[in-house]
């Protein structure tokens, strides 16, 4: 028993020498360290934080109200007091873009959460239970084969009014749009997660978990799910981008939120008729959509790198 001890104490010395001192390194700390190395992801994170803070806090700091009509100030070109100009009812475009960001981001986050939840659940079930695999993957194929936009239009036409009547105009349409984006964008996540689960399931630590008598439910939640977190995170980031774009597209087609609830897509839709008169009305929300989508994509990229233990342990 002396042999092992000698060896082991040497190991501790080595660990202390190579690690960051006696202080314990946590997984989260390591992820953050690796994430910081990805410059694009850092810039993306800053940009995204900026847009988020501006959307949720900005309106309180603005001198103008997003919905207050000032007809004398209509169709202004950018000035110092109105950096993005005003719309045809004299409302400040910066204020409107900020308020629009709220709904756009909220829709994006909730829809992404729904889609990731659906995708992960279906992916894990298909990957873990061989009997469900065929059925669930064919279901996924079926959803992938659906033409999304026409489907969205039909669903909105069918359910908009009844939902509005039950939950009010804003909440009703919010739920409808989140639901629609959610159920039409989970397929990629499901496929990626299924593939990941199939690989992880074969690994020895899963067999080891079974060998100590762990229940199947716990094997899934404690051993398999946490290990497919990195593709799920990436899917979440990409899903958010997709959700923002889909919401914009819907609003742009006039099927999203009513015009008194500005969203970025709705602002584009309203602004397109005035594109010759006040081009900044379209440029502002358009740039914000692109900026958010790009920054979210970069964040996803950085997260994937940071969560991959093979890259992290360098």
């Amino acid at each position: 028993m002396t042999e092992p001890k000698v060896h082991a104490s040497r190991e501790v010395v080595a660990a202390t020498a190579s690690g960051a001192g006696p202080k314990h390194r946590s997984l989260r700390g390591d992820v953050w360290r690796q994430f910081r190395r990805h410059k694009g992801a850092l810039v993306g994170l800053c940009a995204f934080m900026f847009v988020t803070v501006a959307s949720f806090v900005g309106p309180y700091l603005m001198p103008y109200d997003a919905v207050e009509i000032d007809i004398k100030m209509r169709n202004l070109s950018p000035t110092w007091s109105h950096p993005l100009g005003t719309d045809n009812l004299g409302r400040d475009m910066v204020a409107r873009s900020m308020v629009g960001g709220r709904i756009s981001l909220l829709v994006a986050i909730t829809a992404m959460a729904l889609s990731v939840f659906l995708g992960t659940t279906i992916g894990v079930l298909a990957g873990f239970f061989k009997r469900l695999d065929g059925v669930l993957m064919r279901l996924t194929d079926l959803f992938l084969a659906l033409p999304v936009l026409p489907l969205l239009l039909v669903i909105i036409m069918l359910f908009r009014d009844s939902l509005r009547a039950t939950f009010g105009p804003e909440q009703g349409i919010f739920m409808l749009i989140v639901f629609i984006i959610g159920i039409t964008s989970w397929m990629q996540t499901a496929r990626v997660v299924r593939g990941e689960v199939l690989t992880i399931k074969q690994q020895e630590f899963v067999a080891a978990a079974h060998s100590i008598g762990t229940r199947r439910r716990n094997v899934i939640f404690r051993h398999i799910l946490p290990n497919c977190l990195s593709p799920v995170m990436v899917a979440a980031a990409l899903g958010m981008a997709v959700a923002i774009i889909t919401e914009s597209a819907l609003s742009f087609l006039g099927l999203g939120f009513p015009s008194d609830f500005p969203t970025w897509g709705r602002l584009l839709y309203d602004g397109k008729d005035f594109i010759n008169l006040t081009p900044m009305r379209v440029v502002g929300p358009g740039v914000l959509i692109s900026l958010t989508v790009i920054s979210v994509n970069f964040i996803g990229d950085g997260l994937r790198d940071a969560l991959d233990p093979k890259l992290r342990s360098r």
Binding site: E204, F205, H210, S211, T214, R222, P226
Partner: peptide, 30 residues
Amino acid sequence: VRGGKVGFIFQDPMTSLNPVVTVGDQIVES
């Protein structure tokens, strides 16, 4: 019986521990 009365050690220690759970939690799990 698994883990309770019969313990199992696997071949490759590099892959038979869950990489995202702490050592302590993995022992406690059993």
